[in-house]
């Protein structure tokens, strides 16, 4: 199947006062939806994707999120 990919990411204020990573995914049918990653998972995802900035996450497969979680 075609993969859902990250099309955007930004920092949001988490319920517990931490900074969290909100990742927007585009699915193969063109629909989009957000997923919120806690601070630890967000940082791991950035490292796993060698992302120097949030923009560097664009184009990454949803699988990276599961792999790093």
């Amino acid at each position: 199947m075609d993969d859902a990919v990250i099309v955007g990411a930004e920092i949001v204020a988490g319920h517990d006062g931490s900074a969290e990573l909100l990742v927007r995914l585009r699915h193969p049918d063109g629909s989009e939806g957000p997923v919120v990653l806690d601070e630890e998972t967000g940082l791991k995802l950035m490292e796993a994707c060698a992302a120097g900035s949030l923009d560097d996450l664009k184009g990454q497969s949803w699988r990276r999120i599961v792999e790093t979680g």
Binding site: H27, W62, G69
Partner: peptide
């Protein structure tokens, strides 16, 4: 395999941090 992939990709709130 495709079905599992779809379910996972639609439900990262479960499969990313559990």
């Amino acid at each position: 395999e495709a079905a599992v992939d779809r379910i996972k990709s639609w439900n990262l709130h479960i499969f990313a941090m559990r």
